[in-house]
Design a protein around this nucleic acid. Structure first.
Length: 286
DNA sequence: GCAAGCCTGACC
DNA sequence: GGTCAGGCTTGC
């Protein structure tokens, strides 16, 4: 599932392979993946250059340029669960679930958007649209400051759901949420506002460490994820608890458990990640 | 029939 | 303001 490291890998791939190119054609094979009017999207993309790329959490903005200058508008890409963006020769066979093709003025290449589950979306965004979309997201998980992180933790509900809530912190999905909680030795059902100061520091450190390592390894290919060149990520062997139900904890050998928290499967070590019951942090203090 | 990420709408 | 359910889709 594409989370922050996978989207970052796609961003870097597009920077290498598509930055500076011009979009000369857009073919929409399935309008269902387009937010807004498909014709509108085509009109705004055709003839435009790719000026820059920017990511917040799992959202990827491809800035468009006219005569080399960015206008602040962009193509917003959200990969959903199974979305893929590849740069590939135009004459390469069209795989199933290919929904959009964007022809580049770069030799024989085009950008393709594939998505079997069709949870992913492409959307044309004005500068204002993008500000709204990015504004609705919490701080990016790799940019968040300790203060922002601690302040955002002051709310009820399980820490697992908090980590998955993109309005709190943008970028984590189920894989890296479970891995980060394991790293920080925090039980997924711990209430966010009852995470100790030490715990909060450990969690932020864990989130950064896990995400940075995953970015360095081009992400995790659990099922569908591939990068711009069609290559899988290399983080899979680094997973310690995600989908390891019954396997020994890499730290203490206790069998990894799977429970449902906030409606989402959560993998954790029942010995390393003890459930703490401490008083709710007093929001009036400080 | 479940699971996933994100959006929408209902409700307090 | 916040929370929560429902819907989308399809491979397993």
């Amino acid at each position: 599932m594409p989370e922050l490291p996978e989207v970052e890998t796609v961003l870097r791939g597009l920077e290498q392979r598509a930055l500076g190119c011009r979009i000369t054609g857009v073919e929409i094979l399935n309008a269902g993946v387009i937010t807004g009017q498909p014709a509108h999207l085509r009109e705004h993309l055709i003839g435009r250059g790719i000026a820059a790329l920017r990511r917040k959490g799992k959202a990827l903005a491809v800035y468009l340029a006219t005569n080399g200058a960015t206008q602040g508008d962009c193509l917003l890409i959200r990969l959903g669960m199974t979305g893929q963006v590849v740069v590939i020769r135009r004459d390469a066979p069209l795989l199933p679930h290919t929904h959009v093709r964007m022809v580049l003025n770069d030799g024989p290449n085009e950008i393709r958007f594939r998505d079997s589950r069709r949870f992913g979306r492409l959307r044309y965004c004005t500068r204002e649209d993008l500000e709204k979309v990015f504004g609705s997201l919490g701080p990016d998980a790799l940019d968040v400051t300790e203060k922002e992180f601690r302040d955002a933790l002051r709310r009820r509900g399980a820490i697992k759901g908090w980590l998955l809530n993109q309005r709190m912190l943008a970028g984590l999905g189920n894989i890296y949420a479970d891995e980060s909680l394991f790293e920080a030795r925090i039980h997924p059902q711990t209430q966010a506002d009852r995470v100790s100061e030490r715990g909060a520091r450990a969690l932020l450190r864990a989130v950064r460490r896990v995400l940075r390592q995953a970015v360095a390894l081009q992400g995790t290919s659990f099922r569908d994820y591939i990068d711009i060149e069609g290559r899988p990520g290399n983080f899979l062997p680094k997973l310690r608890v995600y989908q390891k139900t019954g396997k020994p904890c890499p730290r203490c050998k206790a069998p990894i458990r799977r429970i449902t928290v906030c409606g989402r499967s959560s993998h954790f070590c029942p010995r390393c990640q003890r459930r703490t019951r401490r008083p709710r942090a007093n929001t009036n203090s400080r």
